[in-house]
Computed example of a mutant assay.
Amino acid sequence: METNRQDFLKKFNEAFATSDVDFILTAVSDDILWTIAGDKVIQGKDQFASSLHEMASPEPMKLKIRHLITHGKEAAVEGTMTTPNGKTYSFCDIYTFNGFKDAQIKEMKSYVVEEH
Rank of each mutant, 00 (worst) to 15 (best):
F23N: 07
D22Y: 09
D30W: 05
P84A: 14
G72C: 01
F23Y: 12
K101E: 07
A103M: 10
N98Q: 08
I36D: 02
K62T: 15
S51C: 03
Q43W: 03
C92P: 00
L63I: 08
S50T: 02
F100N: 14
F23S: 01
E74T: 12
E54F: 06
G99S: 07
K64S: 14
L68A: 04
V21Y: 05
G99Q: 09
K45T: 09
D46A: 15
K62C: 09
D30K: 13
H67K: 14
L52C: 08
T35P: 01
P60H: 12
F100L: 15
E59A: 15
S110E: 04
I105S: 05
I94R: 01
A75P: 02
T35W: 12
L68P: 00
Q47E: 07
S50L: 07
K62E: 15
K106N: 03
M81A: 05
I36M: 06
S29P: 02
V21S: 03
A17Q: 04
K106G: 00
F100P: 00
K73Y: 03
Q47K: 09
S29Q: 11
A17G: 06
T18I: 07
N13C: 11
W34G: 04
S51D: 09
G72P: 02
D7Y: 07
H67C: 07
T80K: 13
L68F: 02
G86V: 13
K64F: 06
L63E: 09
V21F: 04
D22H: 11
Q43E: 14
K87M: 05
R66L: 14
L33H: 12
A15G: 00
V113L: 12
A75Q: 05
D46E: 15
F16G: 01
Y111T: 06
E74N: 08
G38Y: 01
G86W: 06
S29G: 13
I69W: 04
K109D: 01
T82C: 10
I36G: 01
F48N: 08
Q47V: 05
K45E: 03
A27N: 04
T83E: 03
L52A: 12
K10M: 12
T82Y: 04
A56Q: 06
S19K: 10
F100M: 14
V41T: 15
I36H: 03
H67W: 10
A37K: 15
D102S: 13
A75D: 08
Q6V: 11
V77K: 04
M108H: 01
K45I: 11
M108F: 00
D30S: 12
T70L: 07
F8S: 06
K45Q: 10
T88L: 10
P60W: 09
F8W: 13
K10V: 08
A27P: 01
D102P: 00
G79R: 06
A37T: 09
L68E: 02
A103R: 05
D31P: 00
L68G: 03
F8N: 06
Y95D: 00
M108C: 02
M108A: 02
K101I: 09
L68S: 08
A103F: 09
L68W: 00
K10D: 04
